[in-house]
Amino acid sequence: MTESLRAFVDDLSAGRRTVTVYAADPPSDLADRLSEWHVDVRFDRLPDGSADGFVTVRQGDRFLGSVPLEAVATLFEPTAGVLDAETPQTGSLEPLLELLDDTLFQSFERRQLLAATREIEDRAWRHGRGELHAGFQRPEALAAQRSVYERLAKSDLDVHVYFDGRWDAAPIPGVTEHTESDGELGRFWFVGFCPDTQSQACALIAREREPDTYGGFWTYDPDRVERLVTHLRAAHVEG
């Protein structure tokens, strides 16, 4: 078997994108944070007194879209509401995630990844059918998200969770656990939604580079999502 979770991150070759920030004053640290992505960052000053800022994303000559500047800030500084395990949220980050899909990031903290992960989980919850595969690295991480996965399992989703280690808590009804010891599951954070409708497919995968610091990407490409789920089935479900 030549496929691996590491290959999904190392082999990504997405075209470089240009992010232009429009604001009356440049955000003090936004350019530094975006510099850790596979993007070019530009700033275009708006006149004083202008409406709230926004960002646009282009790939070559193609305009991909725009989002309010606050959406970018929310990704880097997630609010408590986005991370509320009792209430899956409804798409505050989704437009930004779609504009930056298949774009490599080099340094994300756990809370930022959790905010992006919650968007994928919420999409799966709203759609309600298909397969949801989530890698937690360690059983303690799954325990912290138990209430979310109890709720997801009450839908018609086929929910699979993965981690390196031993699950000593009570099983989560409707959730299938896959474990290993000293393998790739302990090094990668991932979530993949493979629905019955390809247009809803999405996934995130990130490798832990330093403690609680991750590099990776998310994608809305159905073929890429199917490839990830096929690998998980072969390596950790059927293998």
Rank of each mutant, 00 (worst) to 15 (best):
T2G: 10
T2L: 09
L5E: 02
R6N: 08
A14M: 01
R16D: 03
V19Q: 02
V19M: 09
A23V: 07
A24Y: 01
P26L: 15
L30I: 02
D32N: 05
E36F: 13
D48N: 07
S50Q: 09
A51H: 13
Q59A: 13
G60H: 13
R62K: 08
L69N: 06
T74C: 08
F76P: 08
F76I: 07
E77S: 09
A80Y: 05
A80M: 00
P88S: 04
P88I: 05
T90E: 11
G91H: 13
S92Q: 09
L93S: 08
L96H: 10
L100R: 00
F108K: 03
R111Y: 09
I120Q: 04
R126K: 11
G130V: 08
L132S: 04
H133V: 01
G135W: 01
P139W: 10
P139Y: 12
E140T: 07
A141W: 11
E150H: 05
R151T: 11
Y162Q: 01
Y162C: 02
D164W: 06
A170R: 12
A170I: 02
H178R: 09
E184N: 03
E184C: 06
L185M: 09
W189R: 13
C194N: 14
T197Q: 12
S199D: 13
A206F: 11
D223H: 10
R224M: 02
R224P: 00
V225D: 00
V225M: 02
L232Q: 04
G239K: 03
